[in-house]
């Protein structure tokens, strides 16, 4: 029986299968009956679908966090600028108030 390269790739990518089991499959895959091979296909596709969904969920969370973080950083920067400006105004006002009245 011809072994599909995709099936070999799915076996190699499996995170649930031990190295020993992968070796066993590489050695015995050609001798397995078709129903077992079909079952193996389904199980490995299911595993990769699960990993892919998990990766997408994690990616979505990262993107969401990044958007919130950028917004938070933007607000923080804006607040920092406002505080800096407020401090400058306060300093100028203090300087103005401390200035001798006859020199104003």
């Amino acid at each position: 029986m011809t072994i599909s390269p995709q099936l070999l790739k799915l076996i190699d990518l499996s995170q649930f299968m031990s190295a020993e089991k992968k070796q066993w499959l590489h050695a015995n895959l050609a001798a397995l009956p078709d129903p077992k091979v079909q079952q193996l296909w389904q199980m490995l596709i299911k595993e990769q679908s699960l990993h892919l969904r998990h990766q997408k969920e994690a990616l979505s969370l990262r993107k969401e966090h990044r958007t919130k973080k950028l917004k938070a950083l933007s607000l923080a920067a804006e607040k920092q600028v406002q505080q800096s400006e407020a401090r400058q105004v306060t300093a100028l006002e203090a300087e103005f108030n401390n200035f001798p009245s006859e020199q104003r």
Binding site: L61, E64, H65, K68, K69, K71, A72, L73, L75, A76, A77, K79, Q80
Partner: peptide, 14 residues
């Protein structure tokens, strides 16, 4: 800006 409370909250939520 990392110490800003808004940024800290965003990190904690994430």
């Amino acid at each position: 800006l990392e110490t800003d409370q808004t940024v800290i909250d965003a990190d904690a939520e994430a």
